[in-house]
Nucleic acid binder design. Structure first.
Lengths: 199, 199
DNA sequence: GTCGTTCTGACAGTCACTCTCTCGAACGAA
DNA sequence: TTCGTTCGAGAGAGTGACTGTCAGAACGAC
C-alpha cells in the first residue's frame, strides 16, 4: 500500500538530509556544495533539488508544510492557540524524535538541535525558516476565526504573532544552549500573548 | 557638512532604485538582471551590490534599518507599542513621501504601493521583507522591556508579534487593493494585540 | 508480459553574488 | 593651494545555486 516508490523516496530524503547535516557540521553550511551532498548521498543533484527545492530547504523541510488542513485543525484550539502550540511542541519533543537509535549520547544524533542550530547561525537558513513560519501562519490563520470574535484580517495578524512568537522563543532556547526542553521556553515566552485570548 | 561623497551616494541610490522599479514594473522582477539595472542607472553592477546587497534589497531597503537606537526609542512607547506603531505608520503615510514631485497623478509615482506590491507578489522579495521585519524585531525588543512586566525573552516574542503582525496587516492592505490608508489596516488588524498591554 | 505514467540522472545554460585589484576623486591637514 | 591618505567606484574573473529540457528506466495497473 505504501507504494514502493514513495517508500524509497522517503528513505532517500532521510539519507540526503543526514549526509547533508554531516557535511554541514563538518565543514560549515557555506562550504558545502549541493553536488557534494548529492555525491555523499549517492543521488544526482537534480534529485536534491526535486526533493528540497533549495539548499536551505535541506534544513527547513517541515512536516507541517505537508500536513493536511484537517489534521492541522485538530491540533489547534481556537480558544487557546498558545496552549495548543505548547502541546504540539511538547508532543514533538517527546522521545522517538531522534531517529530510531537507542538510548545513549544524544548530542550528535538528530534532536531538533542539530537542524535548528543553523536557523540562528546561518543567515540564509534563518531567512528560509522565516518563510516557513510565514507559510505556517497562512495555514493556521483561517483556523483562528473560530470564536467569531476576530475577523479574517485580525486572524492573519494573530497567526503571524503566534508563529513568529514561536520562532522568537526558539531563538531564546537556542541562545540558552538548546539543552532544556523547548516547550518551557514557548510557555514562558508566549505567556503575554495569552491575554489576547483571555476571557 | 553633509559630505559631498555621502550626498552623491544618496542620489545614486535613489536613481538606481527608481530605474529598477521602472524595469520591474515593465518586465517583471524575475526578467530583469542586475546588469540591466546598473546600465539603466549608469553605474556598475558592483555599485548596485555595494548599495543594496541583493536584488531584493532594491525593494526592501528600509530607512529603519539605518535608524539609530535612540531615535527608535523616541518613536516607541513601551506602554502602548501598538499605538506607537500606528502613529509611525500614520506619519510615514503623510504626503511628502512620494518623492518631491508636485501634486497630481500618484498612481505611477512612489507611494509605498509601488515598492510594497512586490512584497506580496514575488516570493523572494517576500522572504527578504520578512528578514527585514526580523531585523526590526531584534532592534525593538530591548525597548519593550520598559515597564518591567516582561522579561527579555517575552520582549523578543512581543517584538516579533508586533513586526510580523504589522506585516500581516500590510498584506491585508495589499489584498484590498492598496488604496485606503495603511494606518487603518494596522489599527484594525492589531486591535486584538492591544490586550497584551491593557492594564 | 505490456503499456502508460512517473521518476531519475545527465546536461547545458543563466545569473546572482563574491573576491580582488587598480585607479581616481574626495577628504583632512599643513 | 598642495600634498599625502583614505575611501569608494569600476573592471574582471570566478563560483555555485537554480532552472529548464530530455532520454531512459523503473514502477503500477491491467
Amino acid at each position: 500500500m505504501a507504494g514502493l516508490r514513495e517508500q524509497w523516496r522517503r528513505t532517500a530524503m532521510r539519507t540526503i538530509q543526514e549526509r547533508a547535516l554531516d557535511l554541514f557540521d563538518e565543514r560549515g553550511f557555506g562550504a558545502v556544495t549541493i553536488e557534494e551532498i548529492a555525491a555523499a548521498a549517492e543521488v544526482s543533484p537534480s534529485s536534491v533539488y526535486r526533493y528540497f527545492g533549495t539548499k536551505e530547504g535541506l534544513l527547513v523541510a517541515d512536516e507541517f508544510d505537508t500536513m493536511s488542513p484537517a489534521a492541522l485543525g485538530e491540533l489547534l484550539d481556537p480558544a487557546d492557540p498558545v496552549g495548543s502550540l505548547v502541546e504540539v511542541v511538547r508532543r514533538y519533543e517527546a522521545p522517538q524524535h531522534g531517529a530510531d537509535d537507542g538510548p545513549g549520547d544524544r548530542s550528535g544524533t538528530d534532536g531538533p538541535w542539530r537542524r535548528v542550530r543553523y536557523f540562528f547561525t546561518e543567515p540564509s537558513v534563518r531567512s528560509a525558516a522565516l518563510a516557513a513560519m510565514d507559510r505556517a501562519a497562512a495555514r493556521i490563520a483561517p483556523l483562528l476565526e473560530g470564536g467569531g470574535t476576530v475577523d479574517a484580517a485580525q486572524a492573519r495578524v494573530l497567526a503571524h504573532a503566534l508563529t513568529f512568537g514561536y520562532f522568537a522563543a526558539l531563538e531564546t532556547w537556542h541562545d540558552d544552549g538548546g539543552t532544556r526542553p523547548i516547550a518551557g521556553y514557548v510557555t514562558a515566552g508566549l505567556a503575554p500573548l495569552r491575554r489576547v485570548w483571555a476571557s
